[in-house]
Design a protein around this nucleic acid. Structure first.
Length: 187
DNA sequence: AGGATGATGGACT
DNA sequence: GTCCATCATCCTA
């Protein structure tokens, strides 16, 4: 359990992804702190994975997926929403983990303002980015650099993790590479 | 409670 | 022109 985040991010995505559950994404956008505990992630495995943006190799859009582990890859989804990933594995392979959802543990009022809502602040990839203030401009950020505006930090792992097929894709449905943290009744 | 749909931009055929 | 790693809103029950 003495793992560091940097250690976990070197693993292949289907191994690293479940271990990111419980970690926290912290943003310092516009001088406002928002902290989200990750509860839902998906693995995308580059050239081996037809559902991955990196399947056909490196392009200007997906370039940061191929960067060093812990690099933030942000893409625009359906022309409207921004979604956040972290690159994992060796540099150059195009492996990544999509951050699909989490719960706001700090800065809920800021997140509510950005979302124009008080519920469903970060339970979806587009919503999570909006709550944290992550946009395309943050693409390429080093999530492990303490001076970055967006950072990934270690957190308490959940006790129960469930794996399911990934959401919103039409290929490689046989891979159960979506991982969700199941909340435990505290008793 | 659950299904359909429009918004909207970039990458690819 | 078509396909998306989505979401909010508008419908029908």
């Amino acid at each position: 359990m003495a793992d560091s985040l940097a250690e976990v991010l070197v693993d292949p995505p289907e191994v690293a992804a479940p271990r990111l559950l419980g970690a926290q994404l912290v943003s310092l956008v516009d001088g406002q702190v928002v902290r989200v505990r990750l509860t839902e992630v998906e693995a995308y495995k580059g050239g081996d994975d037809p559902a991955s943006h990196a399947y056909r190799g490196r392009t200007p859009r997906n370039g940061s997926m191929f960067d060093k582990p812990g690099t933030l890859y942000v893409y625009r989804s359906y022309g409207i929403h921004d979604c956040a990933n972290t690159a994992v594995g060796p540099e150059g392979v195009g492996w990544a983990i999509l951050i699909r959802g989490g719960e706001v543990v700090e800065g809920a009022s800021v997140a509510s303002m950005r979302r124009s809502r008080s519920d469903d602040l970060a339970n979806g990839p587009g919503k999570l980015c909006q709550a944290l203030g992550i946009t395309l401009g943050h693409n390429g950020t080093d999530l492990l650099d303490p001076s970055s505006v967006i950072r990934l930090v270690w957190g308490q792992p959940p006790e129960v993790i469930v794996a399911t097929p990934r959401v919103g894709i039409s290929k490689a449905m046989d891979r159960p590479w979506r991982f969700i943290a199941v909340s435990q009744p505290s008793g």
